[in-house]
Design a protein around this nucleic acid. Structure first.
Lengths: 195, 195, 195, 195
DNA sequence: AATGAATGAGACTTCATTCAT
DNA sequence: TATGAATGAAGTCTCATTCAT
C-alpha cells in the first residue's frame, strides 16, 4: 500500500466530503485542508498538486473496490451469478457511501481530459473484470458465442453507470441495491443465448 | 466578403470548434470570438454570458436532433426498427460532426451542476422518445410485458452513451455507425420477450 | 442660445430623468438614448461625448437659473432682501424639479475632477452674484464692513448646498422652500444672540 | 528590511496616496497594491473588495478624528470655544494631510450611493457632536434659544466643508488653519452688523 | 440627419502553489 | 513535519464610441 500515514487518507476523506458537499468547483485546496484539519501547505507534503488529490482519491477508493470485486466473484460458478454479484456490489458500495457516489458519478467528471484519462486507466481493472466474466460466459455457453465483447462490456458498464447516476440525480430516494436483479436480468437477456 | 450566416449560429459553431480543439477550460471567450471572426464584445450581443453560449449550443445542436429523430422513427412500424433507427441516427450524427461529438460527450460534462441540469432538461426529450418506443414495443408484444421501463431506458441510453464515449476516447479510429446493428441486437435481446 | 434644435434639449431632459432614476453610474449612453427616443449614435451628432452631455445639462439648467436670479434680485433694494430671494429661488427651483435636484446635488458629484472643474466654472456666475450682494450689503452698512467676502460667500453657498443635499437625502419629505426664511435669518444673523 | 506597519494600515495609507495622486477612477487595485508594496492578491486578505478599502479608509481616518474631536472639545467650557476648537482641528487635520484632504473632499464623493451611505453613517458621529455643542450653547444662553438646530448644523457643516473644498480647489495655496477664527466668527455672529 | 450593430480596451477578483519560519 | 501569509497570473464582461448604410 502506497501510503499508510494517517494524514494521507485523512486528506482524501476530507476531499470526498468537501467535494460532495460543495461541488468540484467550490472545493478549493484551502477548503479541503480545513476539512482535513491541516494547513494548506501540508496538503503539498502528501500530494504533488490538486489533481493528484483527485487521482489518488479515485485510486484509493475504487482500487480497493475492484480488488474486492475480483475476490467476491471468484466464489461463484456461473458468469451470470458473477455478473449479479458485480452489479450488487457496485450498487451497494455507492449506496453505502453517498458522498463517494456523488463525487465519482457527478463531480469528478467535471475535470479536464487529462484527469479523466487517468481515471479511465484505473477503471481498466473494472472493465477487464467484466471482460473476464463475459469470456467465461461465452466459453460456458451461457452467453451467445458471437457476442461482441467490447460492445457487451460497454452495455454493462454504461447501464450500471447510468443507473447509478440517475439514482443520484433523483436524490437517491429509492433503493438502488434492490434494482440489481432487474438490471442483471436486462443485461443477461442482452448477452444471452437466444435459442 | 460578408459571412451570410447570422452571427448567432456563427458564434455557436465557433464555440463547438474551439471547445473541441482546446478543451472546455481552455476555451476563453476571446478564443471563441476570434474563431468566430467577431470582437469579444459581440458575443454579448447574442448571449447573456459564457454559460449561455454552451446551453444555446446544446439546445441548437441537440434540440434539432431530437426533433429529427421523432420524425424519422415515425416512418417505421415496429419498436425494434424504431430503436435501430434511433441508434443509427445517434451514431451517424456524432460520426458526421466529430467536433460536436467531443463537445457533447466530453467537454460539456466538465461544467457546473446548474449547466448540467439545463442540459439534462433538454435531454428529457430524447429520453421521452425512448420511453415511447419502449411502451409501443411492450404493447405490440415485441418487448417483455414486465419490462421496467425506467431501467430499460437507462440501459439503452447508458449503452449508447458509453459506446460513443469509448469511440471518442479511442480517437474514433473505427466505424461507429457500423456498430449500430450489433448494439441494437444487444439492447433488443435485453428488452426482448424470452419465451 | 446655443442650440434650439429640439433633439438637443430632448437628450438633455432624457439625461436628467435617466440619471435621477438610475444613478450616474447606471446611466449608460444607450439608456439615455432610449429615454430620449433616439438612436445611440444620434447622441453624438449633438454632443462631443458623454461628459459633454453632463456639462451641457448643467449649463442649460443652471445657466438659465443664474440669469433668472440676477434679474429677480435686481428688484429688491437691500442686500438682505436680495439674499432672501436668492435662497428662496434656489430652494424653489430644486423643489419644483426633483429629478434635477437629485442630479445636481448627488449624481453629478460622482464625476471626475475635470468635469467638476467645468461645473465649478459655470457656478462662478452664481458665486459672483453672491459676492455682489455681499459687497452691496457692506457698502450699505447692512453687513459688517470687515466681513471677509470669500468666507462669507463660502458660508452662504455651503449652507444652502448642504441644506438642499440633506433635504434630498431625507427623501424630500419636508418643505424645502419653507426653510428659506430661517436659513436666511441664520446667515444674516448667525447663531449669535443679538442682545 | 521588513515593514513593521501591519499590512492593513499599509494598504490604507497606500490607497490614500494613490487616490490623491491619480484620482479615484484611475486608482486600480493593482496600483494601490504596488504603492503598498504588496501583491494584488494580498489586498484581498485584508479587504473584502475594492469598496471595502474605501470604507475602511474613511472609517480609520475619520473615525479617529471624530473621537479626537470629542475629547478635545471636552476641555473647553463655552460652546463658542468648543466650536472654534472643532473648526481649527478640522482644518488642521486636513492641512496636515493634504492627500487625505483630497481623498475625502473630492475623490471619495465620486463613488456610488451605497458607499456614500456608509460614509454618511460614519459622518453621523461628527454631526452629533455639532448638535451637542449647539444644544449646550442654547442652554447656556450663548446661542439664540429659538435656534433651529438642524439648520444651524447644516450651516456649520456646510460652511466648513465648502471652505475646505475651495481651499483644495485653489491648490491649498493659502493657510487654511488661519481661517478658523474668521470662519468661527462668521458662524457665531453671522453676516449681520452687531451694532 | 439618423441609425444601431459592432468594436475592443480594461479591471476586479480568485485560488493553486510557494517558502520562510 | 507543519504552517499559513503571500503571491501573481489570468479571464469575463461592460460600455463609450464609431461608421457603413
Amino acid at each position: 500500500m502506497k501510503n499508510q500515514k494517517p494524514k494521507y487518507m485523512q486528506i482524501i476523506d476530507a476531499a470526498v466530503i468537501t467535494i460532495a458537499e460543495n461541488g468540484y468547483h467550490q472545493s478549493q485546496v484551502s477548503k479541503i485542508a480545513k476539512q482535513a484539519g491541516v494547513a494548506d501547505g501540508t496538503i503539498y507534503l502528501y500530494f504533488k498538486n490538486k489533481e493528484d488529490i483527485l487521482i489518488s482519491l479515485f485510486r484509493e477508493k475504487m482500487g480497493h473496490f475492484i480488488t474486492d470485486l475480483e475476490e467476491v466473484t471468484r466464489s461463484k460458478n456461473t458468469a451470470s451469478e458473477k455478473l449479479l454479484l458485480l452489479i450488487e456490489n457496485h450498487f451497494r458500495r455507492l449506496s453505502e457511501d453517498y458522498h463517494l457516489a456523488i463525487v465519482t458519478q457527478l463531480e469528478l467528471r467535471q475535470t479536464n481530459k487529462d484527469l479523466r484519462l487517468q481515471i479511465n486507466s484505473i477503471l481498466k481493472g473494472y472493465l477487464k473484470l467484466v471482460d473476464k466474466i463475459l469470456v467465461e460466459g461465452i466459453e460456458k455457453g451461457e452467453f451467445d458465442k458471437d457476442l461482441d465483447i467490447r460492445l457487451a462490456r460497454q452495455m454493462i458498464f454504461g447501464t450500471i453507470d447510468e443507473t447509478v447516476t440517475t439514482w443520484i440525480m433523483n436524490d437517491h430516494k429509492y433503493d438502488l441495491v434492490g434494482l440489481a436483479p432487474k438490471v442483471h436480468q436486462l443485461l443477461i437477456n442482452g448477452c444471452g443465448n437466444k435459442n
